[in-house]
Design a binder for these strands. Structure first.
Lengths: 112, 112
DNA sequence: TTTTATGCATAAGAAAATTAGGTATATTTG
DNA sequence: CAAATATACCTAATTTTCTTATGCATAAAA
């Protein structure tokens, strides 16, 4: 994370959302995809990403599958059933956060 | 914070935004105003709020004025000049975060 | 041949919350 | 009147989630 500030707590939601698209992904791939999708605005640091992936795995939201490609290891992650449900929750939570904070920084005069 | 999840890092922005409206405010008033503006969705905890106010003051973004009203103390906070500038920065930062993360959770197919 | 890219990882520290208290006065309610 | 709730401040311990700084290894590019 460097250019655009990433509010703490949103990384997990990003990971779950990307994996909810259906395809399994490995860590490095996630950093590159986020960079591309945000036109370089958001850079996921490895120091944040890998511990986050390990925690999601430990919590039973992700399954891992190790593969060797071009003589280098890749750890492919995919959502478990629990992870699929949690991805829905996290996305709703994010939407609600955005609506809520918009209500403060861009309020309707009647409630200000 | 309890109902809607507050992403870590947004509290300072909320405080600065409310004070940027012009009127000085005291801590308890901020918690009540946020509750009202978000229809109870967002509850600022005192354990987060007061340390945040103290830090903003220590950083020279807020000025304090203590008043006794109904035999109870109130600490009124208002933006310094530096605080006014920072409130603009923080709001831009928040807008950018929202746009950026919308680009991930609600992507244009061309970039996905 | 040195740098950059790919791919994983962890450890120390900082930031910013949560949780759980504490003090005190004023008002409302049973 | 007593007890609960609202108003108003505070802090300390802990947890969560990052950043920063490393480390290792292979492949490709400069």
């Amino acid at each position: 994370m460097s250019n655009a500030k990433l509010y703490k707590g949103s990384l997990t939601t990003i990971i779950l959302k990307l994996l909810a698209e259906g395809d399994k992904m490995y860590g490095y791939e996630i950093t590159q995809k986020v960079k591309k999708m945000t036109q370089g605005e958001l850079k996921i640091t490895e120091g944040a990403l890998y511990p986050a992936l390990h925690k999601l795995e430990a919590d039973g939201l992700l399954d891992v599958e190790v593969k060797k490609v071009d003589n280098r290891l890749r750890k492919y992650y995919k959502l478990t059933e629990k992870g699929t449900k949690e991805s829905v929750n996290k996305l709703e939570e994010l939407e609600r956060f955005i609506e809520t904070i918009q209500g403060i920084v861009n309020p309707k005069p009647s409630l200000g």
